[in-house]
Nucleic acid binder design. Structure first.
Lengths: 380, 380
DNA sequence: AGAATTAGACAAACTTCTTGAAATAAGCGG
DNA sequence: CCGCTTATTTCAAGAAGTTTGTCTAATTCT
């Protein structure tokens, strides 16, 4: 809580922030409505809105048909989402994705470029900066116009945006990612781990809306874990929360069921973990009994690992994300079963509906939160 | 953040709260110091302190020798800790403990009474109320004088103070503990789970001071887990966080090593888990090789279970509390070793120094936080 | 003893909010 | 087409709180 007092101008800032916040959360509002919601007198609301109008944070909008009431029609105002834009970038082993949104999170432009995990770090940094420039241009803006750029990357990322460790991307370990990108991008840059951003995206626009405690399991080219605790992504002391390391009994080596299946069916074929898993899921869908069994074993294995997290943490929900989440109930059901057998209070288990953009989306959210902080704590 | 504006009186409340907060955190302060710290003008600080003085929250104190400076001596003020008192109660299978502290947490009175886990719930409720009355009287107060009563109990306790489930205490499951106690105690009652209060106590006055993410393992008549995440005790969706249920591989059946040892040494003796463990620890201390091995196996077993929590959560510290924590390094070392083998970032492992009062102490902290909330958000 | 230094007290001015009354702009019914 | 109703807007007076500046009081240092 604030430890500092203030003078009358603080009051104005407070009232201004309160009204702006209300404006953001409602579609449109009249002065009277704002005054009532902010518990402030009409004249106050009026001058505050006047200011917001002048600064571009709010805009007046014409009256809609249908909501005609008696009496003099009120002026109607809404939050001006186009007053600011943010960029979200997802950095993965297979390439980069970026999107520009307005302050409401409405996507204005999106773009993706392929990349290679073994490319030199410098090239990757340059590619990120270039992609940001391109997508911002596509949105009709320039980079300095942007309120913040959020970046999600694989690997452990500490609070200052430094990559503590990354096994997936060459030259990434030890890199001051935030610093390097800040040097290349003339806008505030925020960096975080991709799993935390994925669970943030689920909390914002996915299955986990309104939930406070959520465990997110990413399935795809690898397994990843993201924890939402008390409505905030959890980082951990060494930024390593969610790192799935060696575990007693090793509940996380689940892919073996899928690769074994793939090899048994087509011994010659060389497949990555992800490809093998997708192959098995596809065959299981087609009705192959052996594939169904393989997917089921895989899922129960995942469930086993999740239980070690779910039991001490007692989340409301477990979200399965990543490319394998498309398997749907084939994957979800065995996990539910396993939870029902072992958990005192089994959490809800659902598949993510966000698809491959979840990390860029989480990065957008990260950037938006930064923009909001700026918005709601204006300098004197 | 607040969604409501306010008038000038809000400003006064803000300034008043800011100054009170500073006063609480410093030993003594002069008006000029307060004004500077709160970024407020001298006259403002003066009238605010005048108010606080009148309401009893602050007191003027004579000047100390030694810190004589030039110029007119300043009046010196300090937070009046005796302006309020709180009670903390720990409800365990073996009895009740209660303590009264002032608003700084200084213990004014303490008391304990034995109890029995199979006593009827009504008797236990009455005993709690009676103990609170007695300890408050010992402190020279009456119950309505008390700002809040914090109560910690075994069993899962939800956000509204209802016992969701308790295996240790008869008639406790499903009880509206907060409601029942409120009926018997004429003061605000707060209830929470004992493990959460234990970790809260460690964070306040124990080994975990200043840490944000801590795993607390209680060892005694049973095992219990308390999680501090982001500086706050974690509850979980069903208030079941920290419940150590059946786990794959069952890492939590560690006591077996101790009971096996106890039986092998003195086959006739009947001992509880805790007694067996304490017996083994005592013998290990005395140098019994077999006992040392038993304790070591026990500890490694605990470490194994802890890893399932530590790995996904990445805490800064693991605190071992409860009666077996007295074993010290005998218990701690094997856990450290196990962590070093398996964890990417092994957390610091320490034994609690708080002893048997940790739950009552956590309950005090719970009550103090309630009192603080009242203090710093005064009604208009 | 006087100068320097620091604290306390008080008044005037400034900001911001609130209250209440008057003016304005629409719809509705005759 | 005109007056009535209703709700919004505008305006002015007043209250609460903070700040700045000035003056006085109480010590220590020289």
């Amino acid at each position: 809580m604030r430890q500092q007092g203030g003078d009358a101008s603080l009051l104005r800032r407070l009232n201004s922030a309160a009204i702006l916040r209300i404006l953001r959360e409602t579609e449109v509002a009249t002065l009277s409505e704002l005054a009532r919601a902010a518990r402030v007198s009409r004249p106050t609301a009026e001058v505050v809105v006047e200011d917001l109008l002048a600064e571009g944070w709010a805009e007046e909008c014409g009256e809609e048909q249908g909501d005609r009431r008696r009496g003099r029609p009120a002026r109607r105002f809404r939050f001006r989402a186009a007053a600011g834009h943010v960029v979200g970038v997802g950095v993965g082993a297979s390439g980069l994705r970026a999107m520009v949104t307005d302050l409401n999170g409405a996507v204005v432009a999106a773009r993706r470029v392929p990349g290679h995990p073994s490319a030199p770090a410098g090239d990757r940094l340059d590619a990120i900066a270039e992609l940001v420039g391109a997508v911002v241009a596509e949105a009709g803006l320039t980079v300095p116009d942007v309120a913040a750029v959020g970046v999600g990357t694989t690997g452990t990322v500490d609070g200052s945006g430094r990559v503590v460790k990354s096994v997936a991307l060459a030259g990434w370990t030890g890199l001051d990612l935030r610093g390097e990108l800040s040097r290349r991008i003339p806008a505030p840059v925020l960096v975080d781990n991709d799993m935390r951003l994925a669970v943030l995206a689920e909390h914002w626009r996915g299955q986990a809306r309104g939930r406070q405690d959520v465990v997110y399991l990413f399935t795809g080219s690898r397994l990843g874990l993201g924890l939402l605790i008390g409505g905030r992504p959890h980082r951990g002391a060494h930024a390593a929360s969610g790192e799935i390391g060696r575990q007693p009994g090793d509940h996380w080596r689940a892919y073996r069921h899928m690769t074994d299946y793939a090899i048994s069916v087509e011994p010659g074929e060389m497949r990555s973990q992800r490809e093998a898993a997708e192959f098995a899921i596809q065959r299981a869908r087609a009705g192959d009994e052996q594939a169904v069994r393989a997917v089921r074993d895989f899922a129960r294995h995942l469930g086993e690992g999740l239980i070690t997290v779910v039991n001490p943490l007692d989340p409301e929900m477990v979200v399965i994300g990543g490319s394998l989440a498309r398997a749907g109930d084939l994957l979800i059901e065995p996990i539910r079963e396993r939870f029902a057998e072992v958990c005192l209070y089994p959490p809800v288990v659902v598949a993510s509906g966000l698809g491959g953009e979840c990390i860029a989306l989480g990065a957008v959210r990260l950037a938006l939160e930064h923009a909001d902080r700026q918005l709601f704590t204006p300098a004197p």
